[in-house]
Amino acid sequence: MDNNNKLKKIIGPVILVLILAFMISLPLFAQNYTIILLRTILMYVALTLSWVLFSGFTGYTSLATAVFYGTGLYTAGVLNGVLPLPLLMLCSGLISAVLALIIGTITLRLRGIYFAIFTLSSVELIKHVLNWYEINVLGVRGHYVTRVDYGTVYYILLAIVVLILITTYLIKRSRYGLALSGIKSCEEAAVHTGVNATALKVLLFALSAFFIGMTGTVMATGMLYVDSIIAFNLNYSFFPTLMAIFGGMSSMFGPIIGATVFAYLQEYLITRSPDAYMFIFGLVMIITILYLPDGLVGLYVRIRELLLQKAIPQIRRKISGGKHANTAS
């Protein structure tokens, strides 16, 4: 039993390292198309994990992902050619984080649906303010972005995903992870137990925004052109949220699997039946919310339990050899 538990503890990290090694070596032998597809998938994985970093921990549904992703895209356009890519990423990450501090300070006193709606409307607000500024003050719309090759972008995104995973793991293990589960389960009690909930929430929101902003800047290098309407697209708010729900948030694998399946589905459907793809998306989401409240991970847990329930009596019967028939349930 003890060995079994040890094995369980090791198996997760081992699988992660194997996947990581595979993904690092992939560009050496894979086709260009595969790398481009994986780039999109990694982008969604990064966004979904960042979303879960805040919303999964605190229980506050943020729809501000598009604000921070858009800030990343837009900053790449505005500062194109001014800074080298690593500095540019850092810069847009920080701008997104500061933006999150501001939005968070204003809105995190709101709860539930009010917080979600405010964050959602902040996307539209920023989009249209920038659009107005471009048209009326600058007189020029949009910005050119220098292309960076797919391989490099792929590796940067992979690094961001690993960074988010490590951050999430460290927070989960730390005392702040405990405080965050306190906030999620009963914020009022947490506050009266000495947890500075406001500060913790706002800082985590900023950290999540930092990763989202960096992801945006990397992705901008593949777009060549950005303007405010393209950058601040509401879908960037909805998709990560839906992907996390679809995958399930009870483990770190859930959001990764959710984002991967969803992103692949999008890629597959958009080339084959572009008209039907939003329809199929909606259908998948409705089914998930109605029948799989804990997402794919929850489904896996349920199936495993079902199998175990069937398996256990059989094993018991084998062990007891039918001698203690009255103890069998």
Binding site: S185, A189, A190, T193, V195
Partner: peptide
């Protein structure tokens, strides 16, 4: 107002 979803130990540890 305990913290549901957390063990008794975690409640007090917090």
């Amino acid at each position: 107002k305990t913290f549901p979803g957390m063990s008794v130990y975690q409640n007090v540890l917090l």
